[in-house]
Design a protein around this nucleic acid. Structure first.
Length: 322
RNA sequence: GGAGAGGUUCCCGAGCGGUCAAAGGGGGCAGACUGUAAAUCUGUUGGCUUAGCCUUCGAAGGUCCGAAUCCUUCUCUCUCCA
């Protein structure tokens, strides 16, 4: 009986709460209040997966992690790769696992692309082959960006049309997929409808820009007070390179950039971390806003969020009044 | 007190008679997003009743058909000599 048209089949879908919002909007505080009972957290933050990047990635503290089970945090070393494809696989299996335990997964974080891939189903492109990726990169740096784009225009005109000719990140990936599969990237279709094998309640957190910027500045200050500089020094002592995937993160990469420019003070590094965070927050917001199934709340509207989740998933939240 | 350099749009900085609302960069604002996404890229950035008009290049005058660009005075900043 594989037919899934019946109500019974729909009811048997696993449930998941999805909670996203820009950096410093107040996701963690909310988590503690609304989801400390009956939930397990699936982290959807591409930096918090890395061990040793604690302060700079605003990782939930050990106390909270003891109180609520967190998944997909500290699962990689800082020189390792992790990506949206792996996230989707990990997250979907955790969604089933957590549901089978009678708990509900709370997927929360700030990596909009991970949410997009998970909720709307990832494209069926294969996992990247590091060797092919490297050789494509080398070829582009030898032959130039113009060559790359015109090559893509020949082998995959549809993708070339969609991708901006200066966007080497995407041009390179499209060429890589063609080299790897012999098929144009554009032949792998993507969905713009939310997947129907999980019941999602998608909550977006939003604050006015000025309010958010203030919190970002405060949080960066707080990170330095908490010993962020020591964290950086420790990572560098352990051999951290700007080429490590984790070191592209805001807060970390500024220190490598500062090496090139000896006049930059700790103060100016801090300022650029704040600026980059606030720009990042904006990019996150515009991405989140494109999710058709998301409902947005101010983080202080916990009552509204609770009611929305309860009615969307047909459950009751036990709210802790701490 | 003397000699020189200079004050340009939010900032830095080009322009040195018309094609200048003014290059370029920064910052701001908006957007995109097919297994690298805290990444990468795009558009926009004086005002308005927007095929046009108005206000802008330290200030005030002047020359000219026409000035950010030339002249005069004033003012402010910087460097050097006293």
């Amino acid at each position: 009986m594989m037919r899934s048209s019946s109500e019974k089949a729909i009811r048997s879908n696993p449930k998941a709460v999805v909670l996203f919002g820009p950096t410093a909007v107040g996701k963690t505080a909310m988590t503690e209040n609304l989801f400390s009972k009956g939930f397990e957290i699936i982290n959807a933050d591409s930096i918090q997966v890395y061990r040793g990047l604690d302060i700079g990635s605003a990782k939930p503290d050990p106390e909270l992690r003891k109180k609520i089970k967190h998944h997909l945090v500290d699962i990689r070393d800082p020189w390792e790769d992790y990506n949206s494809g792996e996230f989707c696989i990990d997250a979907i299996s955790l969604i089933h696992e957590i549901n089978s335990r009678g708990s509900i997964p709370l997927i929360t974080g700030g990596t909009a692309y991970y949410f997009r891939q998970l909720m709307y189903l990832p494209a069926k492109t294969p996992q990247s082959d590091p060797g092919i990726r490297k050789s494509v990169k080398e070829e582009i740096s030898a032959k130039g960006d113009e060559w790359a784009y015109s090559y893509l225009s020949q082998v995959d005109p549809a993708s070339a049309k969609r991708i901006n000719s200066h966007d080497m990140y995407r041009v390179s990936r499209a060429i890589e997929v063609y080299r790897q599969t012999g098929m144009p990237l554009s032949s792998f279709s993507v969905s713009d409808k939310i997947r129907d094998d999980v019941d999602f309640a998608a909550v977006g957190l939003r604050r006015p820009k000025a309010e958010l910027d203030k919190r970002i500045a405060m949080r960066v200050d707080m990170m330095f007070d908490m010993g962020f500089y020591d964290e950086i020094k420790r990572l560098i002592r352990e051999g951290a390179q700007p080429s490590w995937p984790s070191m592209e993160a805001i807060g970390y990469r500024e220190f490598f950039e500062a090496r090139e420019n000896p006049e930059s003070s700790l103060r100016s590094i801090k300022e650029s971390i704040i600026r980059n965070s606030s720009r990042y927050a904006k990019r996150q917001m515009t991405f989140f806003q494109s999710f058709s199934d998301a409902v947005f709340f101010h983080p202080e509207d916990e009552e509204g969020i609770r009611r929305y989740i309860e009615s969307k998933l047909g459950i009751q939240l036990c709210v802790s009044t701490s």
